[in-house]
Nucleic acid binder design. Structure first.
Lengths: 349, 349
DNA sequence: CTGTTAGCGCTTTCAT
DNA sequence: ATGAAAGCGCTAACAG
């Protein structure tokens, strides 16, 4: 076996010695090649090849430079679940675009909801943090804040010293709710969970106690306004809180609502996945969209176009990119992203 | 403003000094709390709180310990594209499961296809690497190998000194191809790209020159066997190579094939997304599945069940987890994962 | 239970 | 163009 196949990593000092130059010349060869003579450079690269030296040790370099060239992304309770959420996935893609362009790595920080989340944040070797939408009381926020690095929250909550990127959820919900609830007498809402406990329930609007996820809270407030604009009291609006953001649970819960004594004739959901589940349940019940029941989604995902869903369009990908820029320390660190209501055939207007 | 709001990070030495103890006592407080008296510990934590000290610096710790507690995931050419591929996403979720469980971070390494990919690998502060399926000639493989850390490739190619996790693609393709091509006279294949150039073409099986992606190569070999078992020469099998793994491109290419003089009567695809595109094209052409054209997919994604697609089931999630274990240095580092053919209504048998 | 010493591998600073 | 010295912040190893 040649020396290059040696299974231990060599150090810069060893390379320098074998090349017959000082450590600094070896270092310059990697960091400022122009500053080194051709002869010296090739001697160094030669020695490196012989020793199987792959370049300066990343940890040592980070320590010395005070920067890791890596961004940390904190992904709410269940990381594996985050990857199943198409919204979250395009958000990640937006971050990835910026990281790739700037030569940065991107560390995903798995948050489990357990006590060991905080140490994991604390132990993350990153230059900045991006926190995916979470609840007001998430201990992870304080942990990130304590790291004293550039940090942004997507969606919410707003935290002192951290940026905030997202849309005006209340305004968007009000707008799409107005379309969803047009000519409706019994509007209903299919909601994301209210707190990190993620319990499913069906309640009247008045029964909603503390909504700890700011995004959910704002959207509910917008839907409430829309309902009241349509002359319906919030306490008369049925809100179905789903533990997960998927079509299956939404389909079940909507089927239940449709089988009740006072079935809804308009349903505003919080994602296109949920809306798709609602569509399935409505069709299964032999009802017609939008005549019997109007439906709206959120995000304008592929499924929304396929099903003709009226929905709220926003670019999670661009918001991801904005977060990355903020976490890199550039840019004004907070920004409100654009949104629009896309009208299709699932609503009466 | 209190001192805790000070925007610069304090050091362990400063904490120790303020607490009136040695640096090591402070260090133990974070790393081996049991070894420290209650009094000393609380003095340290007190001082830390006052200085806004969030815990030992991750880079310094990594350097000293020689370990970063982070796994690197190398995601082929387009990272943003990787997140759009549901297969890749469940694979990531599997890695995430293991990382969360073991308290590890997970660094996604954005590979762009440019020359700066190698330096980015080289600069990654990780304890082990997981490489998502790539081509035989990908320079990233040598870069990872040079890092001399535990490494696994998912899918392929096999690399000396690195583990390999995946299914027997040839056998699986042979098996599902047998079902797809049953009673067919003009079988066709919808394929992934052949090389990292990702060019789209339609050729006879004999026209396939160098297939550089081992997974694609193996699947083509399996389909070939299946065709030949059915008495059809490989050169008579039309292979449509798609640049991207999505329904849209597959739909276009299948529409083209169906409009040709000798339209296929059986189509074996390489993903359920592609198969879904094929289904759309077939229906749009007014043909019946499986009577006029049989179709098979791959992966048993949600869409496969929805469309009644015969497909190959495998758990990318479990394979992701297996890769993570291997990259953590545990386990035998190579393993062949299970698969099965799921028969539904898109095929004649 | 606490402290001292040494040094992880590298790059910044300041010569030459 | 090259080099010597210093030290980034921390913890393993070894006393006391």
């Amino acid at each position: 076996m040649e020396p290059s196949a040696d299974s231990k990593r060599a150090t810069l000092a060893q390379v320098a010695e074998l090349a017959g130059v000082s450590v600094m010349t070896a270092s310059y060869t990697y960091n400022q090649p122009d500053r080194v003579s051709d002869r010296a450079r090739s001697k160094v690269l030669d020695a490196a090849a012989r020793l199987g030296y792959a370049g300066p040790d990343p940890s040592a370099r980070s320590l010395r430079r005070g920067s890791t060239r890596t961004l940390g992304v904190v992904m709410g309770e269940h990381l594996s679940y985050a990857f199943e959420d198409p919204e979250a996935v395009s958000f990640l893609a937006g971050i990835a675009d910026v990281c790739a362009e700037r030569g940065y790595g991107m560390t995903i920080l798995p948050i489990t909801g357990d006590a060991d989340d905080v140490p994991r944040i604390t132990a993350a070797a990153v230059d900045g943090f991006i926190v995916w939408t979470t609840s007001d009381d998430d201990p992870v926020l304080a942990a990130v804040q304590a790291m004293k690095r550039p940090a942004v929250v997507h969606g919410g909550p707003a935290v002192r010293g951290m940026g905030l990127v997202g849309i005006d959820n209340r305004a968007a919900a009000h707008a799409v709710g107005a379309v969803a609830f047009a000519d409706a007498r019994r509007p209903a809402v299919v909601s994301f969970p209210l707190s990190r406990e993620r319990v499913s329930t069906i309640v009247g609007g008045a029964g909603l106690a503390d909504v700890l996820f700011p995004v959910t809270r704002e959207r509910l407030a917008g839907y409430r306004q829309a309902a009241e604009d349509a002359g319906i009291a919030w306490r008369d609006v049925v809100v179905a809180v789903c533990a997960r953001n998927d079509a299956a649970e939404a389909e079940r819960v909507v089927a239940t609502m449709l089988a009740s004594a006072e079935p809804p004739d308009a349903i505003a959901a919080m994602s296109d996945q949920q809306a798709a589940g609602a569509v399935n349940a409505i069709r299964a019940a032999g009802l017609v969209i939008p005549d019997d029941v109007a439906v709206t989604g959120w995000d304008d995902a592929a499924v929304a176009a396929e099903l003709g869903l009226t929905t709220v369009a926003q670019s999670l990908r661009e918001q991801g990119a904005a977060c990355a820029h903020a976490a890199l320390g550039g840019n004004p660190d907070s920004q409100t992203a654009p949104w629009s209501v896309v009208r299709r055939t699932s609503t009466r207007r």
